[in-house]
């Protein structure tokens, strides 16, 4: 009997979305997605209340929201420690190093043929595993987290950048040859711009990796702040609403981070077919 309202909401939402999805316009698409998200939240809240799920197992969205509002100061200092100092610093250093390496080996096909397979291989490995080692080397503070992030983002960006620099058409390179363009000119005017969509692909996929690296590294040792530290201690005290509040922060930070990089990409690679406004 108690399942009835849950099922009713579910069926109502399905019906609404099925009807809305027929219109298939921008507005209804957004509405359908939002209704789906809201439905999940409502069902979650209802299920927790109706079945009296203990907060230790799954807190209700309202409890998470309350915890979020009550702990903004802690959440903010954790955000600064983990995301800004750890993830962002590491991501910037790693990306810079990867781009510089890609350009440095650009003139050596031999090194590229050697580094690319290794880079591809390393990109598939469980690199977070080096976190304990780097925490030993660089101490408990954010520097060790940034170091983990550097290692995690380096190879995916390197592989994308090298592929991007090689992505020009033979005709474009021939054209450069007919103008007797020196190496610098063809790198700067042709191959770097052409590599941008690839580079941004690498930058986008590594935003999530950067957050993961920074948070997971804190499980191996951290000062008494940081999102990973908070998650592991709050779990220990069974303060699950706070854990979920941290997860919410991580989700928002991850989406924002990705969104900002995607926005910059849109500005830089406005010319790429995937970014152009759709024409009839």
């Amino acid at each position: 009997m108690s399942a009835l309202p849950v099922i009713a909401v579910w069926i109502g939402a399905i019906g609404l979305n099925t009807w809305l999805s027929r219109f298939d316009s921008r507005a209804t698409r957004l509405a359908v997605a939002l209704i789906f998200g809201a439905t999940i939240l409502i069902l979650w809240e209802m299920a927790v209340r109706i079945y009296a799920v203990p907060p230790v197992i799954l807190p209700a969205p309202s409890q998470i929201g309350a915890s979020f509002a009550a702990n903004t100061a802690i959440l903010w200092s954790d955000f600064v420690q983990t995301i800004v100092k750890g993830a962002l610093t590491g991501w910037l250093i790693g990306a810079g190093a990867a781009i510089a390496t890609a350009i440095a080996i650009d003139r050596s096909p031999f090194l590229q043929r050697g580094l690319l397979p290794i880079g591809n291989f390393v990109a598939a490995l469980p690199i977070v595993g080096i976190a304990p080692i780097l925490v030993m080397w660089f101490g408990f503070d954010w520097q060790s987290k940034a170091a983990v992030v550097v290692v995690m983002v380096f190879f995916p960006i390197l592989v994308n950048m090298v592929a991007g620099l090689a992505a020009t058409e033979p005709m474009q390179r021939d054209l450069m040859a007919t103008w007797a363009a020196p190496y610098g000119a063809s790198l700067w005017k042709l191959r770097l711009p052409a590599a941008m969509p690839f580079l941004f692909n690498g930058l986008k996929i590594t935003t999530t990796l950067a957050l993961i690296g920074a948070i997971v590294a804190e499980f191996f040792g951290s000062p008494t702040k940081g999102m990973g530290f908070r998650i592991s201690t709050a779990v220990g005290r069974l303060d699950l609403p706070l854990v979920w509040a941290e997860i919410l922060v991580a989700a928002i930070a991850g989406s924002l981070f990705y969104g900002i990089v995607a926005l910059i990409e849109k500005k830089v690679t406005f010319w790429h077919p995937s970014q152009r406004p759709q024409r009839g």
Partner: peptide, 10 residues
Amino acid sequence: VFQAPGLYPW
């Protein structure tokens, strides 16, 4: 001049 225009999209 090549068969395709080969203009830079950016």
